[in-house]
């Protein structure tokens, strides 16, 4: 066997940026990630032309899955028009020929930083979450090898202790995002820093979610119809952010996850975090007829 047998024909550019062997490695790891939901699988994490920590993990997954007939949506904290989201989306379409969209309903691949869209995802869509820190045990166990052993033993006592201590000290769980969740009754995962509001959307969802941390070189997944249960004590129920009564100052929608906008006078204004969902509401108010999908939450309650 010679090197020339193993390499393909010379090409100026690999389709979808990543070379074929990088894609094959990611495919092998995605298979294992789906087979053991919530369990972090190590992978090589190749170089991509954005800096580590800016979505390289999600980008590699999207680049492996993308094809010319794909439609990609990229969001950054709910917004399609942030610099990071716009750059990644443009890069994806440039190297793959895939169509770009802002509309959750049109997308086949949704790469997201820290939010899940408000409109329900369907079985034909794949959600790819960018994960900065994939290790839920990092806060209680800095040693990665020990943390891996703890996952192997399902030894999550210290996670529970952390939650207990927060309640003792502060009267409530002091975790805004990355709320640890038990997946398929076996592995505790950090659902990337999505807000508590979004963790419930992963439980028994219709869509496949792949979570990928490029800097930390770990990939994990939540298949459809998989139990994702936030760690809670029996007598202290899980609480999502108290946004049910907030109204978006721009679009007028109420009962969805909001961004807090500090005002001149020191008060707070609110804007709906899922920006394109807000755009649809503005369009409808102005007489348009946008197609709005079914939402996970209705009137601030999980439907």
């Amino acid at each position: 066997m010679s090197l020339s047998d193993l390499t393909g024909r010379w090409k100026a550019f690999s389709y979808g940026f990543l070379d074929a062997s990088a894609k094959r490695e990611l495919r092998r790891k995605m298979i294992k990630a789906v087979a053991v939901p919530g369990c972090q699988m190590p992978y090589a994490s190749r170089e991509v032309p954005i800096a580590r920590g800016w979505g390289t993990g999600g980008l590699q997954v999207t680049l492996t899955l993308v094809k010319p007939s794909s439609t990609v949506k990229v969001i950054d904290q709910g917004a399609d028009d942030s610099v990071n989201a716009a750059s990644i989306r443009r890069f994806l379409s440039r190297v793959s020929g895939a169509a770009e969209t802002w509309d959750t309903l049109d997308a086949t691949l949704i790469q997201s930083r820290h939010r899940i869209p408000e409109e329900k995802l369907t079985r034909d869509q794949i959600l790819i979450l960018q994960v900065p820190n994939p290790e839920p045990l990092r806060g209680v166990e800095p040693n990665m090898s020990t943390a891996r052993q703890m996952h192997a033993d399902a030894d999550y006592g210290r996670m529970w202790l952390q939650l207990y201590e927060q309640m003792v000290r502060s009267g409530r769980v002091m975790l805004g995002a990355s709320y640890p969740a038990m997946v398929n009754g076996r592995h505790v995962m950090t659902p990337s820093p999505i807000p508590r509001w979004d963790v419930k959307k992963l439980h028994m969802a219709e869509h496949l979610t792949i979570l990928s941390a490029g800097r930390e070189k770990r990939i994990f997944a939540v298949p459809p119809y998989t139990r994702v249960e936030p760690l809670v004590f029996d007598d202290v129920p899980y609480k999502v952010e108290d946004h049910a009564h907030l109204t978006c100052a721009r679009s007028g929608v109420t009962g969805y996850f909001m961004n807090e906008i500090p005002q001149e006078d020191g008060s707070a204004g609110y804007e709906v975090s899922d920006s394109h969902f807000g755009i649809k509401a503005i369009d409808a108010r102005d007489g348009g007829t946008p197609t709005v999908g079914q939402t996970w939450y209705r009137n601030g309650e999980l439907a």
Binding site: A12, Y15, V34, L65, S93, V95, G97
Partner: peptide, 23 residues
């Protein structure tokens, strides 16, 4: 924009099927 060659199209479609079947 690079176009996928026959192998890329086949591998992508195969993995689509594998990932769909597994999930």
């Amino acid at each position: 924009t690079p176009l996928p060659d026959a192998e890329e199209i086949r591998d992508n479609a195969t993995f689509d099927a594998v990932l769909g079947a597994l999930s």
